[in-house]
Amino acid sequence: MNKKYEQLLAEYLSGELDAEGKSKVEELIATGEIDFMEFRELETLYEELGAIPAPKPATKGHERFYKMLEEAKQAKRKPWFQSITEHIKSLRSVLTMPRLAYAVILMVIGGFIGSQLTNDRTDIEQLSLEMQTMKELMMVNMLEGSSAADRLKAVNISTELPSVDTEAIHALLFTLNNDPSVNVRVQAIEALKRWGDNERVREGLVRAITKQESPIVIIELADAMIELELRNGAVEFERLLQERELDYSVRQKLQSSIAVLM
């Protein structure tokens, strides 16, 4: 086979070739520049390679990994604990009785002032609640805007909110299912993941799977399903695999996601 077509055929085999490239290959086969028999043999061989199985890893690997992770987490905490102990030790060397008495007096005065300010705290809480409501309103309005940049900003606002109400969730899900911009839809998934404990969000994310056309959004949703452990997602991915002609990489991603979710 002609060496100048090696790269083209490698792309064909892995499924990385676009429609134009595929028709070029067909053309080269038709003109005899690519030997059809050899091409077919390679194509079959590539398919057959997929049938060679690999065993599953043993469960002891899981135990080893989580033991290692736990050790790493403890090792990470250690310096923090050590630094506190060292700090206390260094304080002890500078704390004399007069200084200690002075600190106690300051604490008493602080406590008195603090008790006077408690009433103000409820006002502050009220104010921050109003601020949040305002932010939510602004977000919902901006999500309806015509500029993709504004809609992206709106989605980002939602990530700053400590909690979201039903309307905001509805707006984000609507964006995920209907926004023309892929970036906005991906960002909406990221934002919704933050509220992954909310049942409405979980249901909405699963339902959104079959409504998506963009491979990027589908892959992002696959990641979200795994992160939020949404096992229902596997059923929707199965349906997607059966009903649609998806890219090779998307199929692979969905198959591996299904394997994790099942």
């Binding site: 599953k56 899981h62 990994f65 992770l69 987490k73 795994i226 591996s256 994790v260």
Partner: peptide, 14 residues
């Protein structure tokens, strides 16, 4: 570091 657990679940088989 807990997020590494998620990566392990996803990628240990591949």
């Amino acid at each position: 570091l807990d997020k590494l657990g998620l990566l392990f679940e996803r990628y240990n088989r591949p």
